[in-house]
């Protein structure tokens, strides 16, 4: 094996194709599970506002389970456990439609929803009660005080945690490899086996992951800057 030569991997159409397919799959899993997690996070937040004790307890249990069981174990439980309990027709349909990708999106999305809903909730709770009361006293209606007073502040407070958790969701998409989804880390191992250029292959994938993570952090920093108002902490 000769020296460090990234081009030896990238200029080979087969290897480059595998890596690009891997990156695409990583995006499908990351974007899919992010969308699921965010929608579910909002839904759980709304459920928590229902003034029935069982609603609050349900969300608390949901959050507790998903935060205290390792994500990999959750994925394994979905893919090997729950998959096997489904009706047979559904199992056949799933195995024809990339079951491992579907379960990776479901598993990662449901898990991350627990983090997102907590971030949103603590964003909401960090706004002092007096703010809404003051808005009402100034003549804002319920909707209007939400729109102009409560939500902008809640958004600003929740943003840093949401960005951090989005980065970890992106990184966790690599766990899908353990249940056989052919995302970037999976592609890396295949290319490494075929090309015998471990160092180069790992370097390419590491840079790809790093660039995407830093990009998410940068977008987050930009959003935080835009959400910043004079005088606020």
């Amino acid at each position: 094996m000769s020296g460090f030569d990234v081009l030896a991997v990238l200029s080979n159409p087969e290897f480059a194709g595998m890596l690009i397919a891997g990156i695409q799959m990583t995006f499908v899993i990351a974007v899919g599970s992010w969308t699921l997690a965010m929608s579910l996070g909002f839904l759980l937040l709304v459920i928590r506002q229902i003034p029935v004790p069982i609603a609050d307890r349900f969300v608390a249990a949901y959050v507790s389970y998903h935060r205290n069981v390792p994500t990999l174990v959750q994925l394994i439980l979905w893919y090997f456990g729950i998959y096997s309990l489904l009706p047979e027709e559904l199992q056949y349909w799933l195995s024809d439609h990339n079951a491992e990708v579907i379960f990776a999106i479901i598993g990662l999305g449901l898990c991350q929803a627990a983090y997102f809903t907590e971030d949103l909730r603590s964003g909401l709770r960090s706004v002092p009660k007096g703010q809404v009361e003051a808005a009402r006293a100034l003549g804002h209606g319920h909707i209007s005080s939400m729109r102009y007073v409560l939500l902008p502040q809640a958004y600003r407070n929740a943003l840093p945690a949401l960005v951090n958790h989005s980065v970890s969701l992106f990184k966790n998409s690599s766990l899908a490899m353990a249940i056989g989804a052919s995302e970037l880390t999976h592609a890396v191992r295949e290319v490494e086996n075929l090309s015998f250029r471990t160092f180069e292959t790992y370097a390419i994938a590491t840079v790809a992951y790093l660039v995407c993570s830093l990009l998410i952090m940068a977008v987050g920093a930009l959003l935080m800057k835009r959400a910043q108002v004079a005088g606020a902490r």
Partner: peptide, 15 residues
């Protein structure tokens, strides 16, 4: 610190 925070743990394990 940024590399460790930006790269999946799985990738680090492979390294």
């Amino acid at each position: 610190v940024y590399v460790a925070r930006g790269v999946p743990l799985l990738m680090l394990i492979l390294w």
